[in-house]
C-alpha cells in the first residue's frame, strides 16, 4: 500500500501525553495519523466521534502516565481496553497489522498480554511486567540501542542487525521481568528480542547505559509474529538529528535515529 493510504490510530486516555509527537512521527514518514480517545473506540461518545479499529492500518500506544499509573503502569488503561475492544485488538494483530507501544505504551501491551505472548497472539493474563528501575528513580537520559532482531520484527526490517541507534529513555518503571523460566533465552530463541541497551561502542551496558537494570539489557521486544513491538526508549523524540542529545558534537544525517523505526514499518506496509 502507498504511504499516504496508511492510517495510524494513536490511542489516548487521560494521562497519555506523548501522542502529539507519536502522531507527528508517523506523519513525517508519510502516513496519516489520528489521535483517538479510547472512548471513541468504545463508542462512549457522540456518534460523529465514534471510530472503529478496523479502519486503521497501524495502532500506536504512546507514552505517558495513563490514568496516572497509580496502580501498575499501564494496568488501568489495559483493563479498560480489554473489557471494551479486546476482540477487535486481537483481530487487528491476527491480521498482521503493526502495533507499536512506546514507554507507557509498552507497559500497556504487556498488561494486555500482547507482549511477550510467547505462545500466540494475546495471553489471558499478563506474563511479564515492567518493574521499578533499579535506581528507584525516574531516569531521563540518553540510551544507545542495538538492533538484535534477526529478521521478524516489522519495525526494524529496514535496520541492519547489530546497528546502533541513539534513543532517549524517560521512565521510572522499565525493568522487564517475567516468572517464565529462562525468559530471556526463550525470547532469543523466538527472535523476539528487538533492542538491547549497549554502551556507545556497542559493549555490554551497565548503569547508566542500561537505565533500569532490565535482565539481558532488553529495551524492546516483539511478539512471535513480529508485528507487535514494545520498547521503553522513545524513538518518536528523535525524528531529526537536532533533538538527539549530542548533535552539536557531530551527526551523520539530518534525520534522527528514531526515524528508522518508522520508515521500517512503512516499508513493511508498502509491500502489502
Amino acid at each position: 500500500m502507498k504511504a499516504e493510504d496508511v492510517r495510524v490510530c494513536v490511542v489516548r486516555i487521560e494521562g497519555t501525553n506523548c501522542e502529539d509527537e507519536m502522531a507527528n512521527a508517523f506523519e513525517m514518514v508519510g502516513a496519516k495519523s489520528e489521535k483517538v480517545h479510547l472512548k471513541q473506540l468504545l463508542g462512549q461518545c457522540d456518534p460523529s466521534l465514534k471510530r472503529s479499529l478496523e479502519d486503521y492500518d497501524i495502532l500506536a500506544f504512546p507514552g505517558g502516565f495513563s490514568a496516572g499509573d497509580y496502580v501498575r503502569a499501564g494496568a488501568i488503561f489495559a483493563s479498560r481496553i480489554k473489557a471494551g475492544i479486546g476482540k477487535d485488538i486481537r483481530d487487528f494483530v491476527d491480521a498482521g497489522k503493526p502495533v507499536l507501544g512506546v514507554c507507557n505504551g509498552f507497559q500497556i501491551l504487556v498488561e494486555l498480554g500482547l507482549l511477550p505472548a510467547l505462545d500466540g497472539t494475546m495471553s489471558e493474563e499478563p506474563t511479564a511486567a515492567l518493574y521499578n528501575n533499579d535506581s528507584g528513580r525516574f531516569e531521563c537520559r540518553p540510551s544507545i540501542l542495538r538492533n538484535d532482531n534477526r529478521s521478524k520484527c516489522v519495525f526494524t526490517c529496514d535496520i541492519p542487525k547489530g546497528e546502533l541507534l541513539y534513543c532517549p529513555s524517560a521512565h521510572g518503571e522499565g525493568k522487564l521481568m517475567s516468572n517464565i523460566p529462562n525468559f530471556v533465552s526463550k525470547l532469543e530463541e523466538n527472535d523476539q528480542v528487538v533492542f538491547r541497551y549497549v554502551t556507545p561502542d556497542g559493549g555490554r551496558a551497565t548503569y547508566p547505559w542500561n537505565p533500569n537494570g532490565s535482565p539481558g539489557d532488553i529495551a524492546g521486544i516483539c511478539n512471535p509474529a513480529g508485528n507487535v513491538m514494545g520498547m521503553m526508549p522513545h524513538p518518536e523524540r528523535v525524528m531529526t538529528a537536532y533533538t538527539m542529545d549530542d548533535w552539536t558534537r557531530g551527526h551523520r544525517s539530518e534525520d534522527g535515529d528514531g526515524k528508522r523505526i518508522f520508515t521500517s514499518v512503512m516499508k513493511y506496509l508498502s509491500k502489502k
Partner: peptide, 13 residues
C-alpha cells in the same frame, strides 16, 4: 535534572 523528563513533546534541542 535526570528525574525530570526534559524532552517529552520531542522538541528539546
Amino acid at each position: 535534572i535526570r528525574q525530570y523528563d526534559h524532552e517529552v513533546r520531542a522538541g528539546t534541542v
